[in-house]
């Protein structure tokens, strides 16, 4: 196995960071339970309850070896508090930094909200199977997100943005509870004027500032006109959303295995061991979190 794990000895060595012979990949996979220190480089509010946190691995080898696909996640570790699985919201095209979109919801995310740029966190990963961007290449992509579901999908959106000529028509439908819950609104407003992204924002509960669409994400979807033969669908949002969005996509004749769903479960270890994220016969953490609809239909309890 790994070089410094000899028979009968269990070793977690802080000094391994200083072992010059180890490659970044060996460091990440040697003991995949071990988080690697990363420094928070910036934190900004997205909404009252969500922050965009940018981080950078301290060790250069880990930084270079940590290469993710859009849709993958990592385990964020705060020693003494615990770990939480968080989807990576930055595109792999943004090198050297990892961005996470953190909603204050549990103990780890709560503690992180009180931290500052310069503080150190632990990261292990990246884990899971992300979106199959190579299949999407050359095709149209219809992305539907609800609430915090925009976080993993933003990784894909930014990836497409940075490789725009590789993809056909890109349509984004993003639903939020209220206008003040919309994340990355500045980025989306900027794109509103672009010809190469079609954007639909909807809210459940409008306020006085809102002059956009009100209602569920399936409403604008129904009006869309696209060619099902070369369209891939992407869905990420609260559990209740999936079956309604998939229903519309199926009515529009997108094939079962052209619809990709990003699932949320409690991915505690990230490595297909601890069992918490099991869905039917699959592990969300290694077999997913992205499944196509055909696969999802074959998993008991997926939707």
């Amino acid at each position: 196995m790994q070089s410094n794990m000899s028979r009968g000895i269990i070793e977690v060595d802080a000094l391994r960071e200083a072992t010059p012979s180890m490659s970044g990949k060996e460091m990440l996979l040697g003991n995949a339970y071990r988080p690697w220190p990363a420094r928070i480089t910036s934190m900004r509010d997205l909404t009252a309850n969500e922050k965009l946190v940018e981080m950078r691995f301290i060790d250069e080898r880990v930084r270079e070896a940590f290469v993710h696909e859009p849709g993958q996640f990592l385990e964020l570790s705060l020693f003494g508090v615990g770990e939480a699985p968080i989807s990576i919201t930055s595109s792999p095209t943004k090198q050297g930094f990892v961005e996470l979109c953190i909603r204050r919801a549990g103990t780890v995310t709560g503690a992180l909200h009180s931290m500052h740029a310069g503080d150190i966190v632990g990261i292990r990963g990246p884990f899971g199977r992300g979106f199959p961007v190579d299949k999407f290449r050359g095709n149209d992509v219809l992305i539907v997100a609800g609430g915090l579901g925009i976080a993993p999908v933003r990784s894909l959106i930014n990836y497409i943005h940075d490789n725009r000529s590789d993809f056909g028509k890109v349509t984004i439908v993003y639903g939020s509870r209220t206008p003040s819950d919309i994340m990355f609104r500045d980025q989306f407003e900027m794109w509103r004027h672009r010809k190469d992204f079609e954007l639909y924002l909807t809210v459940d509960q409008p306020d006085d500032t809102w002059d956009g669409e009100v209602g569920v994400v399936t409403e604008p979807m129904k009006r869309l006109d696209f060619n099902p033969a070369n369209t891939y669908g992407v869905v990420c949002g609260p559990p209740i959303m999936y079956k309604f969005v998939v229903q519309v996509m199926r009515e529009k004749n997108i094939d079962y295995d052209h619809i990709y769903l990003d699932f949320e479960r409690h991915m505690k270890c990230g490595m297909g061991k601890c069992g918490h994220c099991q869905i039917g016969h699959q592990y969300c953490c290694i077999d997913g979190p992205v499944f196509n609809y055909w696969e999802a239909k074959n998993i008991q309890g997926s939707m």
């Binding site: 009968g8 000895i9 070793e11 020693f79």
Partner: peptide, 21 residues
């Protein structure tokens, strides 16, 4: 025990366990 840590620094500390044959 999977590892030992320094909670203030948020860093791993050395941890070696010799397994009983």
């Amino acid at each position: 025990t999977l590892m030992k840590f320094d909670a203030n620094m948020n860093l791993v500390e050395d941890f070696i366990e010799q397994v009983t044959p």
